[in-house]
Each structure stands twice: as structure tokens, then as C-alpha cells.
Amino acid sequence: MIGNLKPLEIVLIIALIALLFGAKKLPEMARSLGKSARILRSEAKAMKKDDEATAAPHHPAQAAPRTLKAAPRDVTGSVAVTEPHRTVHS
């Protein structure tokens, strides 16, 4: 059971891992783990920011222009769409 490991046993397990993977691969694995953690953190912040943006009231005057695309991943057929302006006649 993991909860019953003594400090000496944990050190032996870490030493065994170091022997198995070698000194070269451990820094690479640590770098990869750090990079994954940074990516996960930035994605979580982006999702939180998106949630806050959708919860905020929508102001059409501040909205970015919408774009219609001809097909997914086809940027050559993109056309900007302008909203018709409504005028009030007295």
C-alpha cells in the first residue's frame, strides 16, 4: 500500500527509477512534465476567461465583425459580414 511506505522505501524507489530511466532522461521528463503543467494552466485560464466573457452582457457595438466561411479550414473563401444599419425615419 502506498500510504504505508517508509521514507527509506521511497528513496529506494526513486533510486530504482533513476537507474531504469538513466540520468539523461530524467531532466527531459521533468521538462516535459513542467511544459504540460504550464499548458494545462494556460488552457484553464483561457476557459475561465471565455466563461466570464459569455456571462458578461453582450454589447453589439463592441462586437467584432462576424465572418462567414465557405468550408472548414478554407480561409480563401472567407467573407466579412456587415450588419445592416437600421435607421429610424420620423
Rank of each mutant, 00 (worst) to 15 (best):
M1D: 08
M1N: 03
I2Q: 00
I2N: 01
I2S: 01
I2E: 01
G3L: 03
G3W: 01
N4E: 12
K6P: 00
P7W: 03
L8H: 07
L8V: 07
E9F: 02
L12A: 12
I13E: 02
A15D: 06
I17S: 11
I17Q: 05
L19N: 14
L19C: 07
L20M: 06
L20P: 00
A23S: 15
A23H: 07
A23I: 11
K24M: 03
L26K: 07
L26P: 00
P27A: 05
P27H: 03
M29T: 01
A30Q: 13
A30H: 08
R31S: 15
R31H: 15
S32H: 10
S32P: 03
L33A: 15
A37Y: 13
A37K: 15
A37T: 09
R38Q: 14
R38W: 03
R38S: 08
I39R: 15
I39G: 04
L40I: 11
L40N: 13
R41L: 10
S42L: 12
S42D: 13
S42G: 01
S42R: 12
E43H: 08
K45G: 01
A46K: 12
M47Q: 15
K48W: 10
D50F: 14
D51N: 07
A55P: 00
P57F: 04
P57G: 01
H58E: 05
H58D: 05
H58C: 03
H59Y: 10
Q62L: 15
A63I: 00
A64C: 00
P65R: 05
P65V: 02
R66N: 04
L68P: 00
L68Y: 04
K69E: 04
P72F: 12
R73T: 09
D74K: 08
D74W: 08
T76N: 11
G77Y: 04
V81T: 06
V81E: 04
V81Q: 06
P84K: 09
H85G: 11
H89R: 15
S90L: 14
